[in-house]
């Protein structure tokens, strides 16, 4: 049975490709996950200049309510900023910010087909031989993101002074926790008090921050190469240590204690990142950013619970992070603070 979005999407794309005829959208199916955007893959067929053509594409549509509220243009422009660089990203095709075409804003992008993103698959044991290669590529690419010139994105993203990056982020995420928490969070509140009392040094440079750079948000192959960096919806300009801290926060060890991303030691990850970025990860500053990212994680998990509790999005994907990760995130904070 054809998905009801197929003819509507075909009509939208036909308007973007005036030289195309016989345009069809088929095989549209939702990709599991996607708590912040609804993600679908589909096949576009059309005829142009007498020649039949086909592309595998991705549709990313805003849901009714999300665990994080972000601007899809920022995500779209972040992908475009890295097109053709050493940071592998899918090609962005069309951005629609209105509700008319598909009820919610969306964008359409190239599908980087044939690769995997699942952390469970990567860490199943089948890929153990290539995990060092994945780690090398993962933190090398993050270093390249940190090294990149942020100027092209300044028209879309706020540009904070280097000494204000930490406060802007902490204010933002504490504000979301204030708004969304359904229960008191003593460990999280203690962490926030510590972060405010012990601010990090100014950012050594202003960087593009991916915002969700972790195992699960890149496409890998059987030999450990990375073919696409995904999920840029939380991208912004800020301290490059923020992204490194997110990649190192304990929640993303996937149960492999002491192995960020389930891949290697923290010292190895930091060394790869420093080599690729040309920047320094001061241990005390990095500690601040890892703990901050534990607070940020908690903000996301309580946000997913709030979206469910308010009735805006009752999908199971909104429940699972809250049930599985709120207490685990507290334990991650205790670890980082040296309490556990």
């Amino acid at each position: 049975m054809a998905h009801p979005l197929e003819p509507r999407l075909a009509a939208y794309i036909a308007g973007k490709l005036p030289a195309a005829s016989d345009l069809t959208v088929t095989a549209l199916e939702r990709i599991s996950g996607g708590a912040s955007r609804e993600t679908y893959r589909f096949v576009l067929n059309w005829t142009e200049g007498g020649e039949a053509r086909m592309r595998k594409l991705i549709l990313r549509r805003d849901p009714p309510a999300s665990l994080i509220d972000t601007e899809r243009r920022i995500e779209f422009e972040a992908y475009r900023a890295f097109a053709g660089t050493s940071v592998p990203v899918p090609e962005m095709l069309w951005l629609e910010e209105g509700d008319e075409a598909l009820d919610h804003p969306f964008f359409v992008a190239e599908e980087i087909a044939g690769y995997q993103a699942s952390p469970q698959m990567l860490l199943s044991g089948a890929f153990d031989a290539v995990l060092p290669k994945v780690a090398e590529r993962k933190w090398t690419i993050l270093g390249e993101i940190a090294k990149a010139d942020p100027a092209p994105l300044a028209q879309w993203m706020e540009t904070p002074p280097p000494d204000a990056c930490w406060k802007r982020e902490l204010d933002h995420w504490e504000g979301l926790i204030d708004k969304d928490q359904a229960e008191p969070l003593p460990v999280t509140r203690a962490a926030i008090r510590w972060l405010r009392a012990n601010p990090p040094p100014p950012a050594q440079k202003l960087s593009i921050v991916h915002g969700d750079y972790r195992t699960g948000n890149f496409l890998f192959d059987a030999v450990g190469e990375i073919h696409g960096i995904l999920d840029w919806e939380m991208s912004h300009l800020g301290d490059p240590l923020e992204d490194l801290g997110w990649s190192l926060q304990p929640i993303w060890t996937f149960g492999r204690a002491g192995r960020p991303g389930g891949l290697c030691s923290q010292a190895q990850a930091v060394a790869i990142w420093e080599r690729a970025s040309g920047l320094t990860a001061d241990p005390e500053a990095l500690h601040w950013w890892i703990l901050f990212n534990c607070v940020k994680g908690q903000g996301i998990w309580v946000g997913s619970a709030a979206a469910f509790n308010r009735g805006g999005n009752r999908a199971p994907i909104m429940i699972y992070p809250a049930w599985w990760l709120i207490n685990a995130q507290d334990r991650a904070m205790l670890q980082v603070m040296g309490k556990l």
């Binding site: 460990v187 993303w252 060890t253 996937f254 599985w324 685990a328 507290d330 334990r331 556990l340």
Partner: peptide
């Protein structure tokens, strides 16, 4: 956090 820990928790 020990009391509340799930058997499948990552931390």
């Amino acid at each position: 956090t020990e009391r509340r820990k799930l058997s499948t928790a990552p931390v």
